[in-house]
């Protein structure tokens, strides 16, 4: 089975720290990490490979430093990886990103399955999986929390729905996105780390994957951010400043009133 896993580099924390004096964002030294949801995708891919044989290839679109995270994926059982990196890709929204990833996937060719994390923790959009499936014209299932049965032809999955769960069967080649319940990702071993240092890794530019630059990056992104701001938190609450017992008493009074 030839499996592709999509990986995104995200900041290790979503905390935005403001300088107490200048009130601007402090850039801290904390390193970027693999999007946590993608680590479940990696683990599931490696488990399927261990069961059915084959290879797992990780793919990412990002800055050159993303190599470090792709090598980390290779320490965890991924066999090879490719990175799409080019100035032309910068400023991409989900549509332009899924276009670039689809070209990367075509470079890998004749894959059976693409696995994505359910969403990325920085953007929280959960769009890349479904959009990539559309770019490639393959079927997809989102929010998979368990693969109940797998073969070279199809998967039987349990997925999360609005009202519980559903069991679905999907024919390969296909794309699935996975939730955190699906597995417990392994940690790399020392030998895994050694492998990752010399594992096959290839960088592609936009031209090398035959990209139409008008569909990449900022130019290829239909959406654009026009403003960003810190949320308004000026709403005034009544502060209860009594002792614990007085506060509890006050809240019980509120409780009596609303009941």
């Amino acid at each position: 089975m030839k499996i592709l896993v999509c990986v995104k580099q995200v900041p290790s924390t979503n905390e935005v720290r403001l300088d107490p004096v200048t009130k601007t964002i402090i850039r801290d030294g904390r390193q970027a990490v693999i999007n946590p949801f993608d680590t479940y995708a990696i683990e599931e891919a490696v488990r399927l490979k261990e069961k059915h044989g084959g290879t797992v290839c990780a793919i990412s679109m990002g800055i050159p430093a993303t190599e470090r995270l792709l090598r980390d994926a290779m320490a965890r059982g991924v066999d090879q990886s490719i990175l799409l990196t080019d100035r032309a890709f910068a400023g991409a929204d989900t549509l332009a990103t899924s276009y670039a990833l689809s070209l990367g996937a075509k470079q890998v060719g004749d894959f059976d399955l693409i696995i994505c994390g359910k969403m990325a923790v920085d953007g929280d959009t959960a769009q890349i999986g479904p959009e990539l499936s559309a770019q490639l014209g393959i079927p997809y299932v989102t929010d998979v929390c368990e693969i109940l049965e797998s073969s070279e032809e199809k998967l039987r999955c349990k997925k999360i729905t609005d009202h519980g769960f559903a069991e679905v069967e999907i024919k390969l080649p296909a794309l699935i996105t996975v939730s955190k319940d699906i597995n417990m990702p392994r940690l790399p071993s020392i030998s895994g780390v050694r492998f990752s240092l010399q594992a096959p890794f290839r960088v592609y530019t936009a031209a090398e994957v035959g990209a139409d630059v008008n569909r990449c990056g900022l130019s290829g992104s239909p959406t654009q951010v026009v403003k960003s701001f810190t949320p308004d938190r000026t709403h005034q609450a009544t502060h209860l400043n009594g002792t614990t017992s007085e506060n509890a008493d006050a809240v019980l009074k509120i409780f009596e009133e609303v009941r």
Partner: peptide, 23 residues
């Protein structure tokens, strides 16, 4: 932005070739 809405809308967006803003 239900589980289904978040799952189906991006397929539509990419097929139509337009933007989609989540949540």
């Amino acid at each position: 932005a239900t589980a289904f809405g978040r799952s189906m809308a991006p397929r539509v967006a990419a097929t139509v070739g337009t933007g989609l803003t989540a949540d």
